[in-house]
Amino acid sequence: MAKATDKAIYFDSSLCTDCKGCQVACKCWNNLPSPIGVNENQNKATAENPYIGSYQNPPDLNSMTRLIMRCNEVETPDLQKGVGLVFSRRSCKHCTDAGCVRVCPPGALYHDEETGFVAVDQSKCIGCHYCATACPYDVPRFYGEKRFIEKCTGCVDRVQNGLKPACVTTCQPGALDFGQRSEMVKKALGRVEVLKARGYKDACAYGINEMDGLHVISVYKYGLDVHQEVKEPKLSAIVPLSEVAKPLSAVGIAAVVAALGISFINGRKYDIGDFRYDEVTGVQTKHGEFYEQFDPAEIKAGEEQEPVHEISRRFNGDKRKGGK
C-alpha cells in the first residue's frame, strides 16, 4: 500500500469546469509544445478520424501532452437537468504497484521518495516502450520519432521546491488539490456523500485501493463508466516476464532498440527536452546551438516538417527584444 507519508493529487469532477487551465499549465511548466502548423490542430474529420464532436482536444495523450481533460455526455433521466456534461482528468495516476517502474530496464522510471509519484529520469530512458505495455491506464507515450518517454511526473521538481504541481496551482474552481494522500482520500469520501445527497447516485471515489493505491485520488460524479475510467486495473501479463528479463542487460536492450529505431526512421532527428539528437551522426546539440546553425534553405520542398522545430525556433532562436 501507499506509504503514510505519501502525497496525492486530488481531482473532483463535480467542481471542475473543464476550463483546461490544467492542460495548458502542464504544457507551460514542462515546456511541451503544441502543433503549430496551419490548421494542424484541427481534426480534419475524415472517415477514419471523425471530428469527435466534443470540447475535448487533443483526442488523447501524446508525446507533447501529458494531461488532457476528457469530455463526455450522458443522459440523466433521474435528475432535473436531464443531461450531463462529464469532465474527467486523464493523466498518469501514479500507482503504488506501478507496472511501468517494475519493467523499466534501466530504472528511468522510479518512485519519488517524498511523494510516491512515479517520476522519470529521461537521461536513463532507452526508449524500449516496455512501460507503455505495462501500464493499465495506457499513459506513457513515445509518439512517432520521439524516443523518450513522456508522461506526468507529478511535477516532482516543483514539489521538491515547496510548490504544488502546475495543474493544481492553476486550477481556479478548486477541482484540483494536492496534499497528504490520506487527507485527499478523506476529502474524496466526504465529497461522494455530498454528491449522492444531491442525487448523483453513482458518484464514487477512485484511486484509494486500485494498484495498491494511486497517487491521484478522483471523485467521479457520474460513476466510472461515464467517466471512461478503468474499472479493475490490473498489471499487464508482461510485467512478471519483463522482470525476469530485466537483469539481463539494460544496455543490450538499448542497443536493440536503437538499431530498430534507425531502421524505422532512418536519418531523422529527435527533439528531446532541451537537446536534439541526430541518430545518424550521433551528434547531440542544445536547442539554441542547433537553431543558430539551422538554415531554412536546407528544408527540401515538400518535406514534412516536425512542428517542434518550428516552435523552438520561434521562441529560442529569435533575436527579440525584451523577455527580461
Partner: peptide
Amino acid sequence: CPALTEAIPT
C-alpha cells in the same frame, strides 16, 4: 497561443 488553439482548434 498554440496550446489554446490546440485545446479548441475549430
